[in-house]
């Protein structure tokens, strides 16, 4: 009996300590994350008007309108294409450049700085510059292609080229970030592992496959999670360069959310999209934690 009391008392004391440490954090999350989240959930079932600050309960009507619209499947597909292609490019190119810049090359530091600089520039400014680069009649790309007799695509006004254009700019802006993280990861791999592999007669490819890649796995995991999440939220470049057009070719969930809220003034429908985005990001992250992290070795 007394054993039970002791256990309960100890549990109780541990709880107190636990609350003391976690409480302030939880409070902040509660105010800034969970409360807005719950509010958003409520909003999704109303026709809330931002100007009058009032709304009626409308049941599932917002869900029907958002999911039933003819453009919705296109928007979902766009989001999927944008995220997978840009994440794949960021990771692939980031790793390649990191491997290159990890060599003892001349001008390595300068190259690293230049590569990283787009990351710290404002997306809006980058988008405006790229509008000129893409201009099919007097842009930079046009000027480069012209001597070879190649007709520059109408990047931003052709529905088939607008998404590639947006992805190019997005990857260009964020490549430096992925590269820098990869370089840090590469430098954390102990030299001895490479020496040991060499002694065992491993070639360059084997060293990459059996030493570098496993050594990079924690960094890779971190990058996969963060780049997917941030690509879901890419807004500035799309808003400046295409406004989701032409013909919804670059309309993604986050841009659609903006459109519904600010252009159509429909807070309820925007809340539905926000909810969907939240669920999608949650599922993607959980899947990654569940299946990807197993393969991560924190050596």
């Amino acid at each position: 009996m007394s054993d039970v009391i002791r256990i309960v008392r100890r549990d109780w004391r541990e709880w107190l300590i636990f609350i003391a440490f976690v409480g302030p954090n939880l409070l902040l999350f509660g105010i800034f994350t969970y409360y807005p989240l719950a509010q958003n959930g409520v909003l999704a079932f109303t026709d809330y008007n931002l100007i009058t600050r009032s709304g009626r309960f409308t049941g599932l009507r917002n869900f029907e309108t958002v999911f039933g619209s003819t453009q919705f499947s296109k928007i979902l597909a766009n989001t999927f294409v944008f995220t997978t292609v840009s994440v794949a490019l960021l990771l692939g190119l980031g790793l390649m450049i990191a491997l290159l810049l990890n060599q003892k090359l001349r001008g390595r530091n300068a190259a690293r700085s230049i590569l990283f600089s787009p990351t710290i520039l404002a997306g809006a400014a980058i988008a405006i510059v790229w509008i000129y680069i893409f201009d099919p009649r007097f842009g930079f790309i046009y000027a480069i292609l012209r001597p070879f007799g190649i007709v520059a695509p109408k990047w931003l006004t052709d529905p088939n080229w607008a998404m590639p254009a947006i992805i190019i700019v997005y990857v260009w802006k964020n490549l430096g970030y992925a590269t820098v993280i990869f370089i840090a990861g590469l430098q954390a791999i102990p030299r001895e592992l490479y020496e040991a592999a060499r002694v065992d007669g491993a070639g360059a490819f084997d060293r990459f496959w059996h030493v570098t890649l496993p050594g990079l796995s924690p960094v890779m995991f971190f990058l996969v999670v963060t780049t997917i999440l941030s690509s879901f939220q890419a807004f500035d470049i799309i808003n400046i360069m295409t406004k989701g057009g032409p013909v919804n070719a670059t309309n993604t969930l986050i841009f659609h959310l903006y459109e519904l809220f600010f252009v159509q003034s429909s807070a309820g429908r925007a809340a539905v999209v926000a909810l969907l985005l939240f669920v999608l990001m949650m599922v993607v992250t959980l899947l990654q934690v569940r299946y990807l992290e197993r393969r991560v070795s924190y050596a």
Binding site: N25, L28, F29, I31, F32, T33, P36
Partner: peptide
Amino acid sequence: RTLLKGIGLG
């Protein structure tokens, strides 16, 4: 990270 996100949101 989540804390940073929270602060960012705020």
